[in-house]
Amino acid sequence: MSVEFFIFLMVAAVAVMAALGLLLSRNAIYAAMFLILNMASVAVIYLLLNAPFIAAVQVAVYAGAVMVLFVFVIMLLGAEKLSQADTKPALKWQRPLSIGLGMALFVALGAVMITRLGVTPAATLIDTSPLAIGKALFTTYLLPFEVASVLLLAAVVGAVVLTKKS
């Protein structure tokens, strides 16, 4: 077992524990903290997968900006203590059914993975430096890049309009 695989196992265990913590926690702030832990551990896995730029963006955008927004809204609304409706759903069969359907989804994903994966040979290492990503972003993917900027502008305007007191 290589050192990299050992690190992966440790970080993957942290990621799954954090996701389960998010699923089971009764306090929205704790859930947000678990999600930040999950995203940070996924960033480490990106580093192991030869994707340093994506790892940096994951920490800066996801674990940073997006989760700060989440924590800000939870505290602004004072919604950290989840209500009784969240812990005890109105539909009695909802929780067992959703867990059953989740298991079915996982079995389906696992079946596809076992039958389809492993037939493709591992490709040679590629240049994944931020320089290479920047070059691809401003040549092949220039149009999606510009569309993304328009999308972000529309989101900013939309967020301001939605929260403005009329």
Binding site: F5, F8, L9, A12, A15, V16, A19, L20, L22, L23, A28, A31, N38, V42, I45, L49, F70, V73, I74, A79, L82, S83, A85, D86, P89, A90, Q94, R95, L97, S98, I99, L101, G102, M103, L105, F106, L109, G110, M113, L117
Partner: peptide
């Protein structure tokens, strides 16, 4: 193993969407 981890995380997310009743969760 990474795809397996991805499947596990996705499944936990799906179960979260189905079980939680709070919009933030």
């Amino acid at each position: 193993p990474v795809i397996l981890l991805s499947a596990v995380l996705f499944t936990i997310g799906v179960v979260g969407v189905l079980t939680r009743r709070n919009a933030l969760m």
